[in-house]
Nucleic acid binder design. Structure first.
Length: 874
RNA sequence: GCGGACGUGGCGAAACUGGUAGACGCACGAGACUUAAAAUCUUGCGCCCUAAAGGCUUGCGGGUUCGAGUCCCGCCGUCCGCACCA
């Protein structure tokens, strides 16, 4: 009778081989069924997969397998985000070519991923470092260029002195390079840009429609794009000292114009430069600003500093009112016009500034219910709602009214045939600088000719391939100091010219891989419009929040750019987005403070107290806080070890079971063991059922109470698990499966004494076993195949359709309602499920328990919530 | 500083649109089987006071409601994002 233990080491590779042989997960582009595209963010081939990958891909696989069972043509591909700096760092450190290093890592990680039993279509595998991929990226770069979506301009860039490369703004964190951690310097370079700002408005507005994205991500993108409505105002300068007669500013608060106390311009504003030419002191001040520029200010909350240029600007509503013009360290040239008017009463920065230089302030917005005479601003600017005061024709207006009035007046006023004021929508978002002075990236397909300028590489010459023979001895870009690579003839005039030696930001690579997956074999163009438009958008995209802004925003832009150039037909690449939580683990430290790996720690539990000891030395180990798994804190668990000792199914099950998927999950030994125990328990139950019921079980005409109870449990679980997979509530799915398993065990236990099973119970048990196998299949696919086989089911569970719950069995004939008296539960009544309010009331009134609890108090009112609860008010 | 999310037993958590708080799992306690252990099974498990009955309980304080973990207001705490964006 004893069922043999389930052995994942034998079963798992066996079933994977069967799936492969039958090409179960390969998706045909000519499949006519409705498609469903599940995608997890593709990994960087760093060397080995980690638990974060396991969690990410386990989640995606549940969705993919479930949707496949639901009859969709599921696209679930995998590839490699294979360009990037670590390959070059490895090249420097280990004298290994980046390509070799990358492909070796890919090979390792592919094997690891395959051991997880993921339902991936490996025939579509791609690596972004492969010329067959990046040639299309080069083609699209040139198409974008033709369509005016690419710009080449000098720009101040963030220069990482350690990595010797340019960083995007987004890659600078607290003034330091996101990867190297080095203090970033500002340099001026000529760079290639994608004109993402052309789509600022659209990228902003379309967020509204991304209803299957986390609110958090949409908000982060919205803030990043930073749309604001305001007014450009041209202030006349009192004297034309530096060949400029006016100063244009941008403001979102034109209503506060009568509270203006000063003007301020950025240290690199043209007017500041002009003024500095005549003033060594100002020149020195500007230099000072540059030095304190990027890094320190965030840390030190830099003091507001200014330098009076001596210039005076004329107030647009009063020619006799002039304002001093300062160069100020807190004004950014990159935003607006690099110049502002300062209204200290209603802007904290401006207030700090005037308080430092003794310029005073005039409040012009007074809170409702406060006497304007006594309303004084000292240290805290007033930025809330109110009515206009001290503002001549604006007095008494609300802020929006005043804004409108100022805009209207300044728009209609002209100076030199131009309106003084212009409404303007401004964005915080900047263009996307894609040039990187690196080797291991996609070459930018441009040739620089002294006569013809920048010349696109002709289509026929694509791809521009990276040369293999490069050296990483010298700092800087190996492409640049390669002896011959950059020397070519100009495609236009044939004269000697040189290649662009910059390569593209790797975020470009990941901005369209999801589109390439739809037809990765295609050679003549990046995509096949028919195919790409059929599969895209991705129905469910899953990855970490760390990509909430960069990768997702770039991809949204790139998809639009692909539409503009005819490579795709849609705007939004990801219809559904899910950001999963991290895998965290306890940390352990030895007495000397060094971190200790979990494998070297033995935990002894004594009641609720836990103490750690070193496995070998027995020395006490301090159990520390729970942190994200990281090599530096050594609190990592290697997926390979887990899969080797427990099997992939156990690892997957545990990753899905404990926490809601968007929250962090704590990896614990006890948790994995619990998962492993469940694997055996389920196998044992299925085995017993298979043994006792045999493989073919006919339907019974009637069901006894025990059998009916089990059937109801099966169909309820089926219903609930389906609904929860749709909501990505994997932890809830697991709970439902446990509940059903308990019900099966109970039924089996009840039937244990009987020599032969009654036919109704045999049917119910076999049905329950089949259903639980199918419910478990998306999460533990190998075990499910083994169970499926044991139950004598035909074919593979991996190709079976999702069962349909019997609505009859989801219904109950009678329900037990709690009865509250004044909101406290005092009794229960059992009533027919379809009982109406009146009859429930009658049953409640006559219930002995209720009468007792009422204790002679008169009933004032009875509230019946059908199927839910009864509340008696006395 | 600005913006956002969250706060439920010893722990991870459930509770769909307000309707029996704590499903399910982990840990732990008791018991069975065993020479013993592991595995497995049975059983208990929010807190307080109990002989029983009761009372209290979703970070804290108010409010709305017949009824609040859920809605509203004000605090406290934790985490995340942005950070001189005019």
């Amino acid at each position: 009778m004893a069922v043999e233990r389930y052995n994942p080491k034998e079963s798992e590779p066996k079933w994977r081989q069967v799936w492969n042989e039958r090409k179960l997960f390969e998706t045909r582009n000519d499949d006519t069924r409705p498609s469903y595209y599940v995608l997890e963010m593709f990994p960087y081939p760093s060397g080995r997969i980690h638990m974060g990958h396991v969690r990410n891909y386990a989640m995606g696989d549940v969705v993919a397998r479930y949707k496949r069972a639901k009859g969709f043509s599921v696209l679930h591909p995998m590839g490699w985000d294979a360009f990037g700096l670590p390959a070059e760092n490895a090249a420097k450190a280990n004298k290994i070519h980046p390509r070799e290093w990358t492909y070796a890592n890919i090979a390792t990680m592919r094997t690891q991923l395959q051991s997880m039993g993921l339902s991936l279509d490996w025939s579509r595998e791609l690596a972004t470092c492969d010329p067959s991929y990046y040639r299309h990226q080069q083609k699209m770069f040139l198409d974008f260029l033709k369509s005016g979506l690419v710009d080449r301009k000098t720009a101040k860039v963030n220069w990482d002195p350690v990595d010797e490369t340019v960083l995007a703004n987004e890659q600078v964190i607290d003034g330091r390079g996101w990867r190297s951690g080095a203090l970033v310097e500002i340099r001026e370079l000529t760079q290639w840009f994608f004109k993402i700002t052309d789509y600022g408005q659209e990228l902003h507005d379309a967020l509204e429609g991304l209803t299957r994205w986390p609110e958090k991500v949409r908000l982060m993108q919205k803030n990043w794009i930073g749309r604001s409505e305001g007014l450009l105002i041209r202030f006349a300068l009192e004297s034309n000292t530096f060949g400029q007669s006016e100063l244009e500013i941008y403001t979102t608060r034109p209503d506060t114009l009568f509270g203006a106390k000063f003007m301020a311009i950025a240290p690199d504003h043209p007017l500041a430069k002009a003024a500095a030419a005549r003033s060594p002191e100002l020149q020195a001040f500007i230099e000072e600003c540059k030095r304190t520029g990027t890094a320190q200010e965030a840390i030190d909350k830099a003091e507001k500093l200014g330098f009076d240029t001596g210039l005076r600007a004329v107030h647009p509503f009063d020619p006799s009112w002039t304002l001093p013009v300062y160069v100020a360290n807190f004004i950014l040239m990159e935003y607006g016009t690099g110049a502002i008017f300062g209204c200290p009463a209603h802007d904290q920065r401006d207030l700090d500034f005037v308080n430092k230089y003794g310029l005073g302030n005039i409040p012009v917005v007074c809170p409702e219910g406060v006497d304007p005479e006594s309303f004084v601003i000292t240290d805290t600017a007033y930025v809330e709602d109110g009515r206009m005061i001290n503002s001549r024709f604006l007095d008494g207006m609300t802020i929006p009214e005043a804004k409108e009035e100022v805009a209207r007046r300044l728009e209609s006023e002209t100076r030199g045939n131009q309106p003084v004021g212009t409404r303007k929508v401004n964005f915080r978002l900047r263009d996307w600088g894609i040039s990187r002075q690196r080797y291991w990236g996609c070459p930018i397909p441009i040739i620089h000719c002294a006569d013809c300028g920048t010349v696109p590489v002709p289509d026929a010459d694509l791809p521009v391939k990276l040369p293999d023979d490069v050296s990483f001895e010298k700092p800087g870009n190996p492409l640049d100091h390669h002896p011959s690579w950059k020397h070519v003839a100009c495609p236009n005039c044939g004269k000697p010219a040189r290649r662009e030696t910059d390569t593209m930001d790797t975020f470009v690579d990941s901005s369209w891989y999801f589109a390439r997956f739809t037809d990765p074999w295609r050679t003549e163009s990046p995509t096949d419009r028919k195919v790409v438009d059929r599969f895209l958008p991705v129905d469910q995209y899953i990855g970490g929040v760390e990509h909430a802004i960069l990768h997702l925003l770039y991809s949204r832009f790139f998809t639009r750019a692909m539409k503009a150039t005819g490579h795709a037909g849609l705007d939004e690449p990801f219809a559904g987005l899910f950001t999963q939580g991290m895998v965290v683990h306890e940390t352990y430290r030895a007495e000397d403070g060094t971190w200790v790996e979990p494998g070297d720690v033995r935990i002894e539990a004594n009641g609720s107290e836990r103490r750690g000891f070193h496995v070998e030395t027995g020395a006490p180990i301090e159990i520390g806080s729970i942190e994200k798994m990281s090599k530096s804190k050594k609190n990592v668990v290697d997926p390979d070890d887990i899969i080797a000792s427990y099997g992939a199914d156990t690892a997957r099950w545990f990753m899905l079971s404990d926490s809601p998927p968007d929250r962090d999950v704590i990896w614990t030994d006890e948790g994995v063991q619990g998962a492993a125990r469940f694997v055996q328990r389920l196998w044992r139950l299925i085995g017993e059922i298979a043994e006792r019921t045999g493989n073919s079980v006919g339907a019974a005409a009637e069901f006894g109470e025990a059998a009916l109870t089990l059937r109801k449990a099966s169909h309820r679980a089926l219903h609930a698990v389906g609904a929860d997979i749709e909501r990505l509530g994997f932890n809830r799915c697991v709970a439902h499966i446990y509940t059903l398993t308990n019900a099966i065990a109970k039924a089996l236990d009840g039937a244990a004494e009987e020599a032969a099973l009654s036919s109704d119970m045999a049917f119910a048990l076999h049905e329950a076993a089949t259903i639980v196998t199918q419910l478990v299949a998306p999460m533990m696919p190998h075990l499910a195949e083994e169970c499926w086989h044991a139950l004598g089911q035909p074919g593979l569970v991996g190709e079976a359709s999702w069962p349909v719950a019997d609505a009859e069995l989801l219904r109950d004939d009678s329900v037990t309602l709690p009865v509250q008296i004044n909101g406290k539960k005092r009794a229960e009544v059992t009533v027919p499920a379809d009982a109406d309010t009146v009859s429930v009331e009658a049953i409640v009134r006559s219930s002995q328990a209720v009468i007792k609890a009422l204790d002679d108090r008169p009933i004032r009112k009875i509230i019946v919530v059908p199927g839910r609860i009864v509340n008696v008010v006395v």
